[in-house]
Computed example of a mutant assay.
Amino acid sequence: MTASPTVVPGSPDFTGTPPLLSARGVHVVFPGRSGAPPARAVDGVDLDIRPGEIVALVGESGCGKTTLARALLGLVEPTAGRVSFDGRPLDRSGRSLKAYRKRVQLVLQDPSGSLNPRHTVYDAVAEGLRIHGHRGDERAAVAGALSRAGLRPPERFFLRYPHELSGGQRQRVVIAGALVLEPELLVADEPVASLDASVRGEILALLLRLRTELGLSALVVTHDLGLAWNIADRVAVMYLGRIVETGAVEQVLTAPRHPYTRALLSVLPEAPGDPVVLTGEPPDPARIPDGCRFHARCQILLGGEADRAGVANACRTQDLEILDGGGDGAGGQVACHWARAGGV
């Protein structure tokens, strides 16, 4: 495991707090090409994010986590299910979506691709203000956002271009561009994946500080369980379009119950024992298997432990219900026949 989690000792208690963002039964289906069956990229997800909470959405590439994040942002319309914000269903009219996107901001993985190379830092940060018709002091708002993002004195960066900045500084500019609109929730898609190891900790510390100082909530989309351990209050592990385990981060990452979570954790540098090598590739989302969607790669089923627990047939034939998205950190939830039979 990585260094002990930064957030756990002082984690706020979210029990009973109404969610800021809520997803219920969200499906996103993309039509197949040339008569192929449709791809179920998100195949039933419940997820809540509470005010001031940081939730890590974890899974390998292709599991549907970025598509889910785009649906939560209103960039992709769910095929089924609903997304609510601050207690109200998301209205997809142009004016309502514009107002919503002021309150929920996206921070992308690659700052170089997020910033227009022809725009100065000032223009990059001010762009959101101009789109949303900001009526106050633009210069003061840009300076404040840059300062909160750790670029001080902010005026020193106004006339710089992205190519004149380090990778960490570019990511801070992207974060400042989100902060300038004073959002309530950040959706950060692999926010440190493209950064050097020496800078990753600084950006994670910045996100934690913003939560403390501004009360920001965050959904952090990542394949990196070490990142989740260091920043999140709660973790949701996603596989083939559905959340398969969720709970308080220290609970899930120190005592994982789902075989898929165990496999992901086993490859971390400090993980005890040998890495779990999963067989094959994740199934095609257009051809999700019957039963548990992980069963074709499951080390517990292949190793005979599911047979000994009497659940092997259920693993192969019985689908599991969508996990409740409430996730107040008490107890945790798992979509696994073997774990529920007491195999953990």
Results as ranks from 00 to 15, higher is better:
2 T>M: 08
8 V>S: 15
10 G>I: 00
10 G>P: 00
12 P>S: 12
12 P>D: 12
14 F>A: 12
16 G>R: 10
26 V>R: 06
30 F>R: 02
31 P>T: 13
31 P>E: 07
33 R>P: 01
35 G>Q: 03
36 A>F: 00
38 P>K: 14
44 G>M: 08
44 G>N: 07
53 E>D: 02
68 L>F: 04
79 T>V: 05
79 T>M: 07
80 A>R: 10
82 R>K: 07
84 S>A: 15
85 F>Q: 04
89 P>L: 00
89 P>I: 00
91 D>H: 11
92 R>L: 13
100 Y>K: 08
105 Q>I: 12
110 D>C: 14
112 S>F: 15
114 S>R: 04
114 S>W: 05
118 R>I: 05
120 T>H: 09
131 I>E: 00
134 H>C: 00
148 R>T: 02
148 R>Y: 00
150 G>D: 10
151 L>P: 03
153 P>G: 01
153 P>E: 01
153 P>T: 04
164 E>T: 12
164 E>P: 13
166 S>C: 09
168 G>Y: 05
168 G>T: 01
172 R>E: 09
173 V>G: 14
174 V>L: 11
177 G>T: 07
179 L>M: 06
180 V>G: 07
189 D>M: 10
195 L>W: 11
196 D>K: 05
213 E>A: 15
218 A>D: 08
220 V>N: 08
221 V>T: 06
226 G>W: 10
227 L>K: 10
229 W>D: 04
233 D>A: 15
238 M>P: 03
238 M>A: 07
240 L>R: 02
240 L>M: 01
246 T>P: 01
247 G>K: 05
250 E>M: 01
251 Q>C: 00
251 Q>H: 11
251 Q>R: 10
256 P>N: 03
256 P>R: 03
263 A>Y: 12
267 V>C: 15
269 P>N: 09
271 A>M: 13
275 P>M: 11
276 V>K: 05
277 V>K: 13
280 G>Q: 07
280 G>K: 05
282 P>G: 05
286 A>F: 04
288 I>W: 01
299 Q>C: 00
301 L>A: 03
303 G>Y: 07
312 A>T: 02
313 N>A: 15
316 R>N: 01
317 T>Y: 12
321 E>Y: 02
323 L>D: 02
330 A>V: 15
330 A>P: 00
340 R>A: 09
342 G>I: 09
344 V>R: 08
344 V>E: 14
